[in-house]
Design a binder for these strands. Structure first.
Lengths: 257, 257
DNA sequence: ACCAATTTGTCCGTATGTATG
DNA sequence: TCATACATACGGACAAATTGG
């Protein structure tokens, strides 16, 4: 039927604001615009793209939300690296909306925490170890304040992940961690032996890192997370209950600047 | 000094478009607006919030980008659940921009893939098994096409994760997977025995699921991922090389609708 | 299949507050 | 302190697309 086969290129049809966002995104992802490079003022973008200011602004909002650009104190635009924390809370929010269960959270957290511990034993620096030790001291001093205690427990596990010096692992464990560790407060409130057991476990984990004893580290992390599960169930919760919407609000506070 | 302690509440100061976005987000996260519920037209939102339409539109762009609302074919606004895929590609892009190394990717992927396999052995349904079997048949038929072959390998691991019936794990492994598996194409091009070894491993993994043999499943998955690493290095790459920007473009194609 | 009403995408002009030099 | 540049927000406008008769 066709006399010739023209093989036209696909016509790109997208709203103007999207094209603006894509164009700037491309420059950043390709590295032609580096982090902290200025993007230019809105008026300049208006001129460069030949679209209206409102259109440029919509495109900018998209990039701000995805964390590729930010505004400094003077609201000038700069490129930046997406913050892990922000990405992780988006992730967490999605998990809550999908109504995942604590079992799913637990199953994932246990492997990621053990992996973080394994690599922390290999790669922890003296600074990492000092930070973890300081965290344990603080934790021991906050046994009368379950909320602060739970916060410090979350920090402990974050420090372990940081000590692994594996950013992918750090990023992968954070969404589950954001939802997982707030329950610590509930557990230590309801289970009397919760706090001392947790502190003892943290000591053993730090010791394992100091001694570069990988097997001991993995073992104690497994016990530690399993302990959380027992406490969670002893506090009267079922692992098959979905993560409640309430938690998301708690967890999402972190992302507010 | 102070005669009275007034204890005023913190004054919330934020741009109008942000308040619009936050207000709608709150309704969705709280569940008062459920997925697929209509959000209303821009004009309605203008009336309800008492702000300008441009302001409403900026707020909408933010929520669209974060995946909480979408527009259907008629561009009407609906609430929706954030898609895993979109979140994962944002994550992957961040990893690329942070210039993480293949070692970090590999260390994380190996624990997540093994965990996915472990739970897949427990929870895979007949449908899951059929889908995996079909994938293997397709893979065997595409040994002459490395690109399609690599794509099917990525699908295989996605199917394993799906068979785990753990959405947190599915979500956690996807960002690393998006960056990890595109390299399969490179490996099977450069290493002659790559394809048959990969296919054999997939067969063993499927067998393990069928026989509900968790130890065999974990063992073969470990071998399989280690095999990738050997192939990667044999193809002349260093694990300590950062994931290149190029890969991101490849991986990001997935998110385009 | 045609038409009227609605809605979105985009644009223009303007006012206001604020940051910077 | 003042002036300038800039971000935020507003009101109004119009064409194209979509909807619902």
């Amino acid at each position: 039927m066709s006399a010739v086969s023209p093989s036209f290129k696909r016509i790109e049809v997208a709203p103007a604001y999207q094209k603006v966002a894509d164009a700037i995104e491309r420059e950043i992802v390709n590295g032609r615009i580096k982090p902290d490079d200025p993007i230019g003022t809105e008026s300049q973008l208006v001129q460069q793209f030949g679209v209206n200011r409102s259109t440029v602004r919509e495109g900018i909002r998209v990039l701000e939300e995805s964390g590729l650009i930010r505004r400094d104190s003077s609201r000038r635009l700069y490129a930046c690296l997406p913050r892990y924390n922000k990405l992780a809370s988006r992730f967490s929010r999605a998990l809550v909306l999908h109504e995942v269960t604590f079992r799913e959270l637990f199953e994932t957290a246990i492997v990621l925490e053990i992996a973080a511990m394994e690599y922390a034993v290999d790669h922890a620096t003296d600074e990492d170890i000092d930070a973890i030790a300081a965290n344990i001291v603080e934790t021991e001093q906050s046994v009368t304040n379950p909320a602060a205690f739970a916060e410090l427990d979350a920090d402990f596990h974050m420090l372990i992940a940081k000590a692994s010096h594996n950013r992918v692992l750090q990023l992968a464990r954070e969404p589950a961690g954001l939802l997982f560790f707030p329950t610590t407060e509930m557990v230590v409130r309801d289970v009397a032996e919760g706090m001392p057991r947790l502190i003892a476990a943290h000591h053993h984990l730090l010791d394992a890192i100091r001694k570069r004893d990988k097997e001991s580290g993995k073992l104690w992390m497994r016990r530690h997370v399993e302990d959380w599960r027992r406490g969670f169930e002893r506090a009267g919760n079922s692992l098959d209950r979905p993560v409640e919407r309430m938690y998301s609000e708690h967890a999402l506070l972190a992302r507010k600047r």
